[in-house]
């Protein structure tokens, strides 16, 4: 029998703002670049994770969203371990791909940066989130034109119904140059808010 699922927490990061469960937590100067915005939030939240500064912009965006989600979820680390991760975006890792391209354009000055190159895959962000929270569950990353709540709902439901994961961290984490948008939510059998693709779509559209 198909189980009803619930949303434990959700987070939105866009236009220099961060909201969690619909509540606005941060509004920053609109002149800030994304790295400046991310750094300010990192400092203000007193996150102690120096690896953050080595991440590319996509990973920073996903990392921050997941920080707020797991903080709001208030779950034991043992439970978090078996979280599935189902994320998606439009630009894949293009933002970092361009930076890598810049280091190899000139044959006479050909010094590709290993630290940039390792982020030329969108699912590296999932790896960063997994390392941070010691997550060992299933994961997948989709590249699509737009946020697809149906696909994410089907995949998340399948992971939980088939007992592959107890929780699933889902969402859309997209960044390309100055445009960024993260909408992340944590789904499980138990949670404070009813989950359905219609509800998620509504939150995504209105938040």
């Amino acid at each position: 029998m198909k189980k009803n699922l619930n949303t434990i927490a959700y987070c939105r990061i866009k236009n220099h703002t961060i909201s969690v469960n619909g509540k606005l937590l941060y509004t920053k100067d609109s002149q800030l670049t994304f790295p400046e915005f991310a750094k300010q939030v990192y400092k203000e939240k007193n996150i102690a994770y120096p690896k953050f500064f080595k991440m590319d912009n996509l990973s920073k965006l996903g990392f921050l969203a997941s920080e707020f989600i797991f903080e709001a979820a208030k779950l034991d680390s043992d439970i978090i371990k078996n979280t599935g991760i189902v994320l998606s975006n439009r630009a894949s890792s293009l933002d970092t791909d361009r930076k890598h391209q810049e280091t190899i354009n000139d044959k006479n000055n050909y010094y590709p940066s290993p630290a940039v190159f390792v982020y030329t895959l969108a699912n590296i962000m999932i790896g960063e989130i997994s390392i941070r929270h010691q997550i060992k569950g299933e994961n997948v990353f989709f590249v699509a034109e737009q946020f697809n709540e149906i696909l994410l709902e089907q995949y998340a439901s399948s992971l939980i119904q088939n007992k592959k994961s107890d929780l699933v961290l889902c969402g859309w984490v997209d960044i390309d140059k100055d445009k960024y948008d993260a909408f992340m939510y944590l789904v499980a059998e138990e949670g404070p808010q009813k989950y359905s693709k219609e509800i998620i779509k509504k939150i995504y559209t209105e938040d």
């Binding site: 120096p50 080595k54 010094y111 590709p112 940066s113 290993p114 630290a115 390792v118």
Partner: peptide, 17 residues
């Protein structure tokens, strides 16, 4: 400083460049 293996590669590139 707690550097990792990617940092080591980055230092190798720095020596060359």
């Amino acid at each position: 400083l707690g550097l990792d293996s990617i940092d080591a590669l980055e230092l190798i590139v720095m020596l060359d460049k």
